[in-house]
Design a protein around this nucleic acid. Structure first.
Lengths: 346, 346
DNA sequence: CTGTTAGCGCATTCAA
DNA sequence: TTGAATGCGCTAACAG
């Protein structure tokens, strides 16, 4: 009826194409996979395949070759724009290299990740990308022993023999603190996420190191930890912080928390950046959209994701290569929320 | 070494399990699929499988049964939080029903969708969920002729015989306009997205109908269309709008555009909601996080996604059922940005 | 209740 | 260069 291929009552197979072309199925397979064949035969095969609208069957090919052309991405928190961006980048790289992306949502519990690793043995994906919030010994062991190649986006114990790509978030928080100090802020508070997570621990370390290095006050009342890397948890933490101290700058463990801090400040009629400067982390779109626009530490999430995807594909194409750890250096995107006091004000 | 299953040098297969258990592979298959077997045999099989860390192979099973346990989701714009939320919901429903989610990013061009439909013939997924921005006759034809079940999230021509779930965005815009009118706004402007998209067209229609129904002015200078449903495009459109008229309320085609409008208003020192009320659509997290918090039309994106996923799974489990179109009714989430003038002010 | 066997659609080895 | 035949791991039909 349309200009579609002639016959397509049923999915066509190699056999049908072979019959129509009057050749063997082996020849069809070869031609369609670009292996040498006489021009004449190739032409016949291609025409037949075309006419039948032939499309090779993924599972049959997988069963035979062991390759699925799928890579799995395990993301703990789709509510966090950072992970969404990462997913986006991974999808792009994967598609370009001919892989489909299968999404495997897991909780933040390492058990989930380990279980996922096990289910991967079903062979529904050739490789796995994951970004665990919490890392236990068991998880590292499972990662090392995994039959399917895995690349971790995030920090791992240095002895772990696993491909990984991580941000230097200690340095990242350092950038933020130094920036604030250099624009005259002295009482720099820190709203962290959960300290029992890998990023939470690293960011706290970065904060403490930087504040100490610069000789700034580092009392306990300047520090709070949100129960989660979310807006909601951030809002509560912000309220707690502002109830117990009066900082002139606040560094936040991510942009969602920073936006929450902005909101809480606005609710208390504390002006940003005039009274308090605020810096977020991740440099997500939320930072740009915030009012005032949020200065944020760019931890290279997009680049990390792309790098990790490429690392994984590299290993898939070349299983023998030595494991590799890539560290992405942070940069600072300066916006209104941390403008120096002198130029601020209403 | 660890408490892992004993032997796992290689992926184990039915044959290995059968040997170890001293039974036939058919029995192993049956036991593992919960079919009747003597308690004793079942026990032997299960132990052997356990000891070998047996996991059934997905592609082999697929080749045999024709089921992949995967559903594909085609999303045009991962930059839009609405689609992210939908993905999230779909992932949840799919996982609960035992399906994996494979992400198939496409452009907004219907050709992409049609091509995707074709590639689905590879059999890498049992069904498809898609949310096309633009719908052509060709796409509808491809949808109808598709060999794999597809559910559309969005509007389709009424004669299309395809499962779909859509929002009543005409009514949705109506809610927004009525709300604004009822709080005393008279010059209600509209910042749309591209009019050549399905949602763009529907939202414009909703705006025009509502404004007319209420006897409000509906001059051309009160209407602009952003080139895209993005913040950036929204910002430009907002600037254009405010250059050509002075509304006391602005309805926006989505939250990203609404946030852009808020920003543009702030830049011009126009107060919200005192001078101008703003309403967005989608009721995404961005609406809550905006400053002031954004009144937004909830088009039920989460519910649409869940419903669509369930519809698809229903069809997968029961291919014969008649196609169905579900319409989700909109609601309004009222926040600061549209507070009545009397209570507003500084 | 259990075992034997035949393919699912394909890539690939071995012969010709 | 091409064709015939094998088997990837599994489920299901059939036999016993």
């Amino acid at each position: 009826m349309s200009e579609q291929p002639t016959i397509e009552a049923k999915r066509s197979t190699l056999v049908l194409v072979a019959e129509r072309a009057g050749v063997s199925i082996a020849s069809v397979s070869r031609v369609l996979n670009g292996q040498p064949a006489s021009a004449q035969l190739a032409e016949r095969v291609r025409r037949a395949a075309d006419e039948l609208g032939y499309v090779p069957d993924a599972s049959a090919r997988t069963l035979k070759t062991g390759r699925t052309d799928q890579i799995a991405l395990a993301v703990a928190d789709l509510g966090n724009p950072v992970y969404v961006k990462m997913m986006h980048e991974v999808a792009r790289v994967a598609a370009k290299k001919g892989y489909r992306l299968v999404l495997s949502s897991t909780g933040s519990d390492p058990k989930d990740q380990i279980e996922l690793l096990g289910s991967l043995n079903r062979g529904f994906a050739d490789g796995l990308l994951m970004s665990p919030l919490r890392v236990t010994e068991e998880l590292v062991a499972a990662l090392q022993g995994s039959r399917i190649p895995t690349v971790v986006i995030g920090s791992l114990p240095s002895e772990a023999d696993v491909d990984s790509v991580r941000a230097d978030s200690v340095a990242g928080v350092g950038l933020a603190v130094e920036h604030l100090a250099s624009t005259g802020r002295r009482h720099i508070a820190f709203v962290n996420g959960p300290v029992d997570t890998v990023p939470g621990a690293a960011r706290l370390e970065g904060y403490l190191r930087a504040v100490e290095r610069l000789g700034l006050p580092t009392t306990a009342d300047l520090q709070v930890a949100a129960s989660d890397f979310t807006y909601k948890a951030g809002r509560k933490a912000a309220a707690r912080l502002l109830g117990q101290c009066s900082p002139d700058a606040i560094v936040c463990a991510n942009d969602l928390i920073a936006v929450a801090v902005l909101k809480e400040l606005a609710a208390r009629r504390i002006r940003v950046p005039h009274d308090v400067a605020v810096v977020g982390m991740d440099d997500s779109e939320a930072a740009e959209l915030a009012d005032p626009a949020l200065t944020s530490v760019n931890l290279g999430s997009a680049k990390r994701a792309r790098t990790a995807a490429k690392l994984l594909i590299r290993r898939l194409e070349n299983p023998g290569v030595a494991t590799k750890t890539v560290v992405i250096e942070p940069t600072l995107s300066i916006r209104e929320s941390s403008a120096a006091r002198e130029v601020a004000g209403e």
